[in-house]
Computed example of a mutant assay.
Amino acid sequence: MFKVMVVDDMEVMRRQIKRLPLWGEGTGFSIVDEAEDGQEALYKLQRQPVDLLITDIKMPRINGIELLKEAHENQLATCVVFLSEHSEFNFAKEAIQYGIFDYLVKPVKAEELKTLLQKVKNYIEEREQAQIQLKKLEDKLMEKIEVYYPTSYLNSIVQYVCEGNKEAIKTIGAMVDDTAAALGHDIVKTAIVLEKAYNEILIGVKDKHGWIEEFVDINFFADTNLTHYSDIDSIKKKLIEMLEAIISIITKFILYSGKSPLIKEICIYVMGNVENNISITTISEALFLTKNHIGDIFKQETGMTVGEYITMVKIERAKQLVAEGTFKSYEIAEKLGYSNVEYFAKLFKKNTGLTPMEFKHELKKTDIS
């Protein structure tokens, strides 16, 4: 049975749709939930996604367009259909951008909805068959991944990325071109092989720089979905964007120096101990070097003092902890070794321009928009 949610701020409209004699075994569709606005719908969809979302456009708090965008980006509904009046079709362009499936004009007529349900059913079944075929093709190609990319080749790219070396970008571009040529420029096959290769690179980077998951949501980088692209250039652009972003993160935290390998050692130590009490003293003891030597060479090579670097790293970790929403501000302060919560809040604001609470509020606004 296909699951349906109906969203409209007018109860009479929701009731009218629910009373239509189309729900159940006859069509294979069942209304499992309803909501009176987009915010309530989004809350419920995050807990139970549906196959078909039928929603009004003009609603308080979160409107139909915003709900469509969230449903599309977070895979909360396979098909989204707008309930609209003729005067509302000026929303069409933005709706198409976020993958609207169809429209129903109020009040909903039984015959029109019946036709729509059949279209939705056909679409979902065809989509499922396509996914089955794609999985079979993927399994077949995965058996041959070593043919395309020996482990040593992928390891060299991992090394470039981990060192913040832009040679990784040139190499990944060549990888895309070589793969496409080897597979006769078949987009789907090329996407499958490259996605597997990219995931191997990502695993390699995480193995070498385990700290990275403490500062960014690594799932963002794992979600490439290359099979969604329709041409080789788009696949290449996506992979390059991903690697550039990863390199940017690594070079932000690991301050490489052409003159002294000690800089990297200091950075790695700080990253690995971000939730401990760290200072130039603890670093000097760990590396068996004097504080003066460490302080002088670090400042000379990076332009930052060791203390400034430690603060930067701790605040970046704090930002990630705030974003995750698991801990309160005082718990984050304690977790990062700050016994004085007010001092931590001032330090956070000095470095971000916002208090931890303001930062969290801004993140929520960004998520909604």
Score class of each variant (00 low, 15 high):
E163P: 10
M175T: 09
S156W: 04
S156C: 11
K170H: 03
T171V: 13
P150L: 02
C162E: 01
V147A: 05
A174L: 11
T171Y: 09
I145C: 01
I169R: 02
I145T: 07
S152H: 11
G173L: 05
K166E: 15
E163Q: 15
I145A: 01
N155Q: 11
K144V: 02
V158S: 00
V161K: 02
P150M: 02
I169K: 03
S152R: 14
V158D: 00
V158N: 00
Y160W: 09
Y160V: 09
V158P: 01
K170F: 06
N165C: 03
K166A: 09
P150E: 01
G164R: 03
P150N: 01
K170E: 02
I172V: 14
Y160Q: 11
I169E: 04
D177K: 07
A168C: 13
A168G: 11
E163W: 12
Q159R: 15
A174P: 01
N155E: 12
D178L: 06
I169F: 08
S152C: 08
I172Q: 00
E167N: 13
K144P: 02
I172L: 04
N155T: 04
S156Y: 04
L154A: 05
S156P: 03
I169Q: 02
T151I: 15
Y160D: 10
A168R: 14
E143H: 11
L154S: 04
M142V: 06
K144A: 07
D178V: 03
K144H: 06
T171M: 12
M175Y: 02
K144G: 02
Y160R: 12
A174V: 04
M142Q: 10
T151A: 14
E143G: 12
Y149C: 08
T171L: 09
D178A: 05
K170D: 03
Y153Q: 13
D177A: 08
Q159D: 15
V158M: 02
S156R: 10
I145H: 00
D177N: 07
E143K: 13
E143Y: 04
Y148N: 01
Y148Q: 00
S156A: 14
A174Y: 09
E143V: 12
E163C: 11
M175G: 03
